[in-house]
Design a protein around this nucleic acid. Sequence first.
DNA 1: AATGCAATTGCAAATCGTTTGCAATAAAAA
DNA 2: TTTTTATTGCAAACGATTTGCAATTGCATT
Lengths: 143, 143
Amino acid sequence: MNQHASHKPDYEKELRRAGVRITRPRRVILGILTETDDHPDAMEIFQRASAVDSSISLSTVYRTMKLLEELGAIHRHAFEGGRARFEQADGDHHDHLIDIDTGDVIEFHSDRIEALQEEIARALGYDIVHHRLELYGRKRRKS
Amino acid sequence: MNQHASHKPDYEKELRRAGVRITRPRRVILGILTETDDHPDAMEIFQRASAVDSSISLSTVYRTMKLLEELGAIHRHAFEGGRARFEQADGDHHDHLIDIDTGDVIEFHSDRIEALQEEIARALGYDIVHHRLELYGRKRRKS
DNA sequence: AATGCAATTGCAAATCGTTTGCAATAAAAA
DNA sequence: TTTTTATTGCAAACGATTTGCAATTGCATT
């Protein structure tokens, strides 16, 4: 099991490569995504974007996130509790531990769990297309 | 890893013990839940209930499911794709493999995965409150 | 069996997160 | 700079679920 270290992607380059226009709202949103390491939801991104340019709409945030998701630049997660949350897609697969008190997300990866999942699916006659492993926990109190 | 075998619960007794009234709509819904082994969503339950008594409303289905959930008699799962799905809560914990083509749900349990999850959480300084492990797969083609 | 009253119902409207139609605006190609 | 077309903000629509409310119904009591 090991935690994961992130590196900054160049979203603007990715979008340009996809042939979409680099507009002012998009530039602001991409900037926010680039400088964040957590897992914000659309509303959080919208608020941070509004602080930079108050004319940006929530719709544009959603549209931009959908665009980035389709390009494979970000991942959308439906953790418990309403809103979807986003994170940059930096190649390496990982699962999530969500702090139920703060909402913080810790990424982790376990080859052993992945292998067991494969084993189980095979035994049931299935090929795994994707999976979802989320641990919801609380920080252990110092004893 | 082993699959799970279900046994019929007496929902009506559980409700009565909780001091709620056994109404006609509730009796119909409980009957449907008792005789099903799959993981229906509220709309499916509503449709099956409507076939028995067309005056039953979707609201009542939702209210009854919430009631049973609060009593711990059923579990609610937010698998991918819109609606929540329900299953009887028969003590033993299990995870789910969802057939992405049919929506079928196969239950499984792995002590080894559970142990690894605990290990990971501990290493990160957390206690697991609950977790979600869902495998989304496709039936392996006979080769 | 008739009564009384709180629990339960069906309905419509509200909610929440997200998406969409549309006319106005702005990128970027010419 | 003009033109073309993508993108925007807005408001309205959306789908799943919940809720307020007046009407109904279980059921404990006579």
